[in-house]
Design a binder for these strands. Structure first.
Lengths: 214, 214
DNA sequence: TAACAGGAGTGGTCAGACCACTTTTTGAAC
DNA sequence: GTTCAAAAAGTGGTCTGACCACTCCTGTTA
């Protein structure tokens, strides 16, 4: 295991060595990795070098570290990578329009996904939202959309959407008002029935209505 | 700048601080960042902690370090990091599926965007691709899809797609073959004419064909 | 003027020392 | 023997100081 070439990026070599070690020793998700001190000893490098490699993997969500306990192989479900990258991307081109468009892309994709899956249409949450709208017409826009993305059952898409929402200028925190409530009820109704074209059309009207506010 | 909360992950805070610093000081791609020693001084942390944050960002390709010269804001084009990642990640069925689905979401959205904008349809790149397919039938899948996303004129979507592509198991680097070339030519033809439904249908056939390979 | 030598600056790595926290072991009281 | 609290061991988190290798700039020299 000590065939480390002196390539100019030692910590990258360590990353590779760790990968091999994980494979060779059959370490599974959630299992504990050797401690930093042991790794340093085994790989014949300093502990700080090992830590640089581990910290990189942690930022990627590939491992999880708990002080006092140890380092564990990650569950890969947290796409932290996307968050970090996006926050970096967001500041440079500062193209608010792109953010908005991309957010809408994910929202529409969620609607499509629901309309094409009978199980997602039959979720009780839709009836609940309609009921609430009927009663007092005050439901957070954010709640409605979030439920749709959640229902689409794509965690990565949800992560991205959540991130975009924070950078978006759309007033997600506002309550729906009378006219808007009608549109949303249409949208939910179409979703329940799986009418994809009508649902998307209703969604378009909604967006138009919201953006017309400003 | 020293308002660091003692959250349990100092190096993550540093990453955040760096992001703010880059924005505040208007550091652009290729520009030099302050040296590790200066950063440590400014942020009132040890140099090793700064290095852990920098190494993480380096693995992501967000920064580039050159011994003896300094640390520079990355150009996002280097993606050697992901070779390592893909070998780590691609065993998890559900998250791999999410990555795939999300990638397809962005690809379809690009197609829709192009089909709804006459200017995007009239780009010379489409004719060029068709020509190339006609000649020898060897065009990289990646090139075709990338051109579509670029044409959609949403930089954020492009960034996300690029990221997902690297995680994706789809053999993007492969050449298109005979049967596939026919489908792609259909797709491009529909795009040029702005026939959104037909284009999306052709795209679906393409995906099906690719995934059927395995 | 051109070439060279040296110094300053920078990232790369290591070793050792604490700290904070968790888990395990120990040992005394019951 | 059981219980439980204290001590010890193990682990990640951070800092410091040191040295190396490399790059760039600068001043001296031929």
């Amino acid at each position: 295991m000590q065939n480390l070439k002196p390539s100019s990026k030692m910590f990258l070599d360590i990353v590779g060595e760790l990968r091999l070690m994980i494979k060779a020793e059959g370490i599974n998700i959630g299992d504990k990795l050797p401690s930093e001190r042991v790794l340093a000893e085994r790989l014949q490098v300093g502990r700080s070098t090992v830590r640089e490699a581990l910290r990189s993997l942690e930022l990627l969500g590939l491992i999880e570290t708990r002080r006092g306990e140890g380092t564990f192989l990650g569950d890969f479900k947290k796409h932290q990578l996307v968050e970090v990258l996006s926050t970096f991307i967001m500041q440079q081109p500062k193209s608010a329009m792109d953010v908005n468009e991309t957010r809408i892309i994910h929202e529409k994709a969620a609607i499509e996904s629901i309309c094409k899956d009978i199980h997602k249409q039959n979720l009780p949450v839709w009836e609940g939202l309609i009921m609430k709208l009927q009663e007092d017409g005050t439901v957070l826009r954010e709640d409605i959309v979030r439920e749709m993305i959640i229902a689409s059952d794509n965690r990565l898409s949800l992560k991205i959407w959540f991130l975009l929402k924070q950078y978006s200028k759309v007033p997600y925190e506002k309550m729906t008002e009378e006219k808007e409530a009608g549109i949303v009820k249409d949208l939910l109704g179409h979703i329940i029935e799986g009418r994809v074209f009508e649902a998307l059309a209703a969604y378009d009207r909604w967006i138009e209505d919201i953006e017309g506010e400003e």
